[in-house]
């Protein structure tokens, strides 16, 4: 566990200001993520987890505080994001969607083709490469999103509840597929979810956030050996206790935010 620090987040705060009315989405977030670590951020809805991710993705500017992503090469982009359900671009074919990041960087055609085909195969979409997303199911679309992010080969991956809109069975399947692709590349991942099961299955460390303003209240290591399966997580007694502990925390937070 003594990997170098890949992402260091220092005192990030984001305030949304509207007509004399301000909302503090996140407050004083300080977090270090190690190289190759898979971190899940779990919190009640509206706790600013997405805001945190959007700041890391350079889609939102922090009100104060800084963060940095370590990089030792110019070739890789710093980060790529896997968006929630609608992130696939409908007017690009499956193949063009997966190649999107690579094409935006204007890399050599041959390299783009190889990289795209590799990840299309990884997520089982080779047969559908020429189709438009409208012809695919929700699960297939999220596979495109995942392939697009991995194909871009960034320093770190950011995932914003990518499986939230899927049905339970598809969710399990995609979670295990994600783990298998991830274990090959060992990318550093920050994954946002509100599903405790998902966090326990995927992550090395779970970061719990409080309701508005979003602050880090607890960090939980998940020592379960990899490769993991959903069955193992469900059958493991320690994990069951963790589940209940996290659940209790979330309930408290929800109660607090109601008062």
């Amino acid at each position: 566990m003594d990997q170098p620090v890949k992402i260091s987040i220092d005192n990030l705060t984001k305030v949304f200001y509207k007509k004399n009315n301000s909302v503090t989405a996140i407050q004083n977030i300080t977090l270090n993520v190690e190289e190759g670590e898979f971190v899940c951020i779990v919190g009640p809805s509206g706790c600013g987890k997405t805001t945190l991710l959007r700041i890391l993705a350079d889609l939102e500017q922090p009100s104060s505080g800084t963060f940095s992503i370590e990089s030792d090469t110019d070739f890789r982009p710093l980060q790529s994001m896997v968006f929630q359900e609608k992130g696939v671009i409908p007017w690009l074919t499956v193949e063009e969607n997966v190649a999107f990041g690579l094409n935006m960087r204007h890399l050599p055609k041959e390299f783009v083709r190889k990289q795209t085909n590799y990840y299309l195969k990884k997520v089982g979409l080779t047969k559908f490469s020429k189709l438009y997303p409208k012809e695919l199911s929700g699960g297939m679309k999220q596979r495109i999103s995942i392939a697009r992010a991995f194909a871009n080969d960034p320093e770190i991956l950011l995932m914003d509840e990518p499986f939230a809109a899927l049905d339970e069975q598809n969710k399990f399947i995609l979670q295990e597929e994600l783990l298998s692709i991830w274990s090959e590349t060992k990318k550093t991942v920050i994954f946002i979810t509100h599903s405790i099961d998902e966090a326990l299955l995927l992550s090395d460390r779970i970061v719990l956030m409080s309701a508005q303003p979003g602050e880090i209240v607890e960090e939980i290591k998940v020592p379960l050996p990899r490769p993991r399966t959903m069955e193992q997580v469900r059958a493991n007694l320690e994990m069951a206790e963790q589940f209940i502990a996290i659940w209790n925390h979330l309930q408290q937070e929800v109660q607090k935010s109601r008062k």
């Binding site: 609608k86 992130g87 935006m104």
Partner: peptide, 26 residues
């Protein structure tokens, strides 16, 4: 959709690429 603009930005689309690949077809 706003998320498509976010995708373009996150994956580093240049203004030309953004115009041709996102704004016009969208």
């Amino acid at each position: 959709e706003k998320v498509h603009l976010d995708v373009a930005k996150n994956y580093g689309a240049s203004p030309t690429d953004f115009f041709l690949r996102i704004a016009f077809p969208g």
